[in-house]
Simulated scan of single mutants.
Amino acid sequence: MSHPDPALVDVRPLADHPLVEAGEGRSLRMVAPGAVTRGRFGLVEYRLGPRTPGAAPHYHRTFAESFYVLSGRLTLYVGGAWQTYRPGDFAMAHEQGVHGFRNDGDEPASMLILFTPGVAREAFFAEMAEIGRRDQPPTKEEMAALYARHDQVMVDV
């Protein structure tokens, strides 16, 4: 009896996906970027310090984004309102579903963010981290161009 190819298993040791500081109490780890998953999904570990802003309400046209709370209390914008979620809670924003996140609590919070399909979201997070580490805030034009490149449509709520 023949078996499938064992080379079709990918392993990424922690050293291959280090935690990257993203400024203002935020850090992230690109656990499984779309390039590794053959575009099937992308997985990011995202950490927010106490009272740290995250992503303002927005949506994506071409991919879904899911959130799984690992630690702390995470505030998610879902269903038209900001709501607090705890470890083990899960939320999925389908394509064009308005969502956002932040940490309103006094303790750090962390979550896994899953993108399907595995769009090159790591480029977005790398650019956001770079902006977050700068001494000067980005211009409105710079942010609009970033969002346009990465299928992120901001929503006023």
Rank of each mutant, 00 (worst) to 15 (best):
R12K: 02
P13Q: 08
L19S: 03
E21T: 11
G23I: 11
G23Y: 04
G23S: 00
E24L: 13
R26S: 02
R26E: 03
R26P: 05
R29H: 04
M30T: 09
V31G: 11
V31D: 07
G34F: 01
A35L: 09
V36Q: 07
R40S: 09
R40F: 04
F41K: 05
G42F: 00
L43M: 09
L43D: 01
R47V: 11
G49I: 02
G49V: 00
G49Q: 08
T52N: 06
P53F: 01
A56N: 07
A56P: 10
H58M: 10
H58A: 12
H60M: 03
H60N: 05
R61I: 07
T62G: 06
A64H: 05
F67Q: 07
Y68V: 10
V69I: 12
V69G: 06
S71H: 11
G72L: 07
R73A: 13
L74C: 09
L74M: 15
L76W: 15
L76T: 11
G79D: 15
A81Y: 15
Y85I: 04
P87W: 09
G88Q: 07
D89R: 09
H94Q: 14
H94W: 01
G97C: 15
G97T: 12
V98I: 13
H99L: 12
H99V: 11
R102D: 08
R102F: 11
N103R: 04
N103C: 04
G105N: 11
G105V: 06
D106A: 12
E107C: 04
P108Y: 09
P108W: 15
P108E: 12
P108G: 00
A109R: 01
L112A: 15
I113N: 14
P117W: 00
V119R: 10
R121S: 05
E122Q: 08
A123K: 15
A123S: 15
A123H: 08
F124R: 01
F125Q: 03
F125K: 01
A129Y: 11
A129P: 00
A129Q: 00
A129M: 01
E130L: 02
E130A: 13
I131E: 04
G132F: 07
G132I: 08
R133M: 08
D135G: 15
Q136D: 13
Q136S: 13
